[in-house]
Computed example of a mutant assay.
Amino acid sequence: MTQQQITKGLWLGLLGIVIFAVTLPMTRLAVGTPEAPQMSGVFIALGRAVVAAALSALFLLATRAPLPQRRDWVPLAITAGGVVFGFPLFTSIAMRYVEAMHASVIVGVLPLATAAVGALLHRQRPSAGFWLCAALGSALVVLFAVLRSGAAGLAIHFADVLLLAAMLCAAIGYGYGARLSQHMQAEHVICWALLISLPLTLPLALLSWPQTTVRASAWAGFAYLGVFSMWLGFFAWYRGLALGGTVRVSQVQLVQPFLSMLFAVPLLGESLDAVTVGFGLAVIATVFIGKQMPVHTPRLEPA
């Protein structure tokens, strides 16, 4: 892996994270609040997968993509379980009950989870300095949550459990998707994951179709989730993970909570203060330092 590949992977990973950072605010727009509910979390999660699957079918036909190899079907199913079903379903249900600012801080546990899954799958050995930076970035996110949430906000409730489960699902889906991207075209990984999920997502999305009038802004949020969060974002993200290494590129996710907060200001009218900006800059600094730390991949002996 060359330095040029690592740098390109980091930039592509950052592009994917910028796209993903809008996911929580857009989900909040689509699902609404307990006082003014819009679409159900089940419809948002599965309906956006159907939209992305339709786009995937067109893309795979246009690029004449080959069928996955037999060895790839199980990893594809695991990838789909994480990023097509688990993460969208858990976050969509949770986002009706928490603000985007609150949910964004919980995303801070994702880089460390993704790095751990990636290290296990790709037999990479991050240095102590790398793990120190990852731990420091995660600690900053936790400290930010403590300062912003207060004692009541730290109580574990159902929405928090769902968001933590979503993070675990995403980490597993990212890790397996990145491994598939080592020998499959990165864009094809998410496309096939979406297509093999269609026999479940399509009927469930139809059954959960909104039965009441939904605001135009909610449909706009749903459209973003289907086209960008569920599809185009993975083009950049999986390619970045494949080029730069899952363990290293996953640390770019440390900036995602704060990007989500920035997007929540114009989209949802939530407030952003100097404390949030300060913690955001501190976390970005840990990402910059962390990417300088060595990540070792054991050399395979020739057969």
Results as ranks from 00 to 15, higher is better:
M1N: 14
Q4F: 11
Q5A: 12
I6E: 09
T7P: 00
L10R: 02
L10N: 00
W11D: 08
G13R: 04
L15H: 03
I17Y: 05
P25L: 03
M26H: 01
M26K: 03
R28W: 03
P37G: 07
M39P: 04
G47T: 14
V50Q: 01
V51R: 03
A54Q: 10
S56R: 12
S56A: 15
F59Y: 15
T63P: 08
A65V: 05
Q69R: 11
V74A: 14
P75W: 14
A80Q: 03
G81C: 13
F87E: 06
P88W: 04
L89N: 08
L89R: 08
I93C: 09
M101Y: 08
A103L: 04
I106N: 02
V107G: 02
L110E: 02
A116E: 00
H122D: 11
R123P: 06
Q124M: 08
P126H: 08
P126E: 15
G129L: 07
G129P: 04
A135W: 14
L136I: 14
L143G: 12
F144D: 08
F144A: 10
V146M: 09
A151H: 13
L154N: 03
I156F: 13
F158Q: 07
A159G: 10
L162C: 08
L163K: 00
A166K: 02
C169P: 06
A170V: 02
G175D: 02
Y176L: 12
I190C: 12
I190G: 07
A193W: 13
L198H: 02
L200F: 15
T201P: 01
A205T: 10
W209K: 07
Q211D: 14
Q211P: 09
Q211A: 15
T212G: 14
W219T: 07
G221Y: 00
G221L: 11
Y224Q: 05
G226M: 11
G226F: 08
V227F: 08
G245R: 11
Q251P: 04
Q253M: 13
Q256S: 09
Q256D: 04
M261P: 04
F263D: 01
V265W: 06
L268K: 05
L268H: 05
L268V: 11
A274H: 01
V275S: 04
V275Y: 02
T276I: 12
A282W: 14
A282T: 01
I289C: 08
P294K: 10
E301W: 02
